[in-house]
């Protein structure tokens, strides 16, 4: 008896739309062990990096960053596709191109990831910035067609549109952070008492080097060990130089303590 088992590796081919050439050598494709079912490119580039979201046939959801420009060839070789798995048992997903939020449908519930940018900065915090809720009644086998804060629209098989209200505060705090109005950000977070909002605030504070907001957010998330570590760091030296070093290496230090304690 002769039997053949065929195993195919699926990949995502990346091309430059202006020329049709492959993106650049090693960046020309993303390989994946499981067959892929859907992909979506985020239309906005964050820090000259393109985000791609893809779902495989095992229903696992992944996000990857594609670097678009480099300083030198040696620096470019350090870049790779930073692929992060963010969800499992996902049936379908929708990417909001303006805010880079992802909404995804699981069997009976839907999830919204608000801090996609933080996935490559501090993944633990970014995964906390996620809301989960039950699908609206009769929303089984539906798909998300639009996600504009504060609404998510589901399209049922029979063509009925279902509107669900989601938190409007995430887009508000992002706008306030752009204006550097951290006081209001903290006020909104205290008002809403939402864990995902505090996690999003912590991620934003970490990326914008705002230590006080970061400490408040970590305390609100009841991450006491991290707050203690943070306080111990702050009490070492109070000169401007040390604060500067602290700011530049804060995400690295926090990452270390996250991995140490988890």
């Amino acid at each position: 008896m002769v039997s053949f088992n065929f195993f195919e590796i699926k990949s995502i081919q990346l091309l430059e739309p202006k020329t049709g050439n492959k993106l650049r050598g090693w960046l020309s494709q993303i390989t994946h062990e499981v067959s892929l079912s859907s992909i979506s490119l985020c239309q906005n580039q964050i820090d000259n990096k393109q985000i791609i979201v893809y779902l495989d046939e095992k229903k696992d959801l992944f996000v990857a960053q594609i670097p678009l420009s480099y300083g030198s060839v040696s620096k470019a070789r350090e870049h790779s596709f930073a692929i992060q798995k963010i969800g499992y048992q996902i049936d379908s997903f929708h990417l909001n191109h303006d805010t880079a939020d992802i909404a995804a449908i699981s069997t009976t519930s839907y999830h919204i990831w608000y801090d996609l940018e933080g996935m490559w900065f501090e993944k633990d915090l970014a995964l906390l910035a996620k809301d989960t809720a039950d699908l609206p009644s009769g929303g089984k086998n539906s798909r998300i067609v639009s996600m504009q804060s504060p609404y998510v629209l589901f399209l049922r098989d029979d063509g009925v549109l279902l509107k669900e209200i989601v938190s409007p505060f995430h887009s508000i705090i992002r706008r306030l952070v752009r204006d550097e109005n951290w006081e209001k950000v903290l006020q909104i977070c205290r008002l809403s008492k939402s864990e995902s909002l505090w996690a999003a605030c912590a991620g934003l504070a970490l990326r914008h080097n705002n230590l006080q907001s970061l400490r408040s957010s970590l305390a609100a998330l009841k991450l006491i060990d991290k707050v203690e570590f943070f306080d111990s760091l702050m009490s070492i030296e109070r000169s401007e130089v040390s604060i500067f070093i602290l700011l530049s290496n804060l995400h690295l230090l926090l990452f270390t303590v996250f991995t140490f304690y988890s």
Partner: peptide, 27 residues
């Protein structure tokens, strides 16, 4: 539209790679 995606800088398409791993068993 699920297997292709276009942005201003990248065109992405799910591709099937050419190589296949086959196993042969004889009894």
């Amino acid at each position: 539209n699920q297997v292709t995606s276009l942005s201003s800088r990248i065109f992405a398409i799910i591709d099937i790679e050419g190589h296949k791993v086959s196993s042969l068993s004889c009894f």
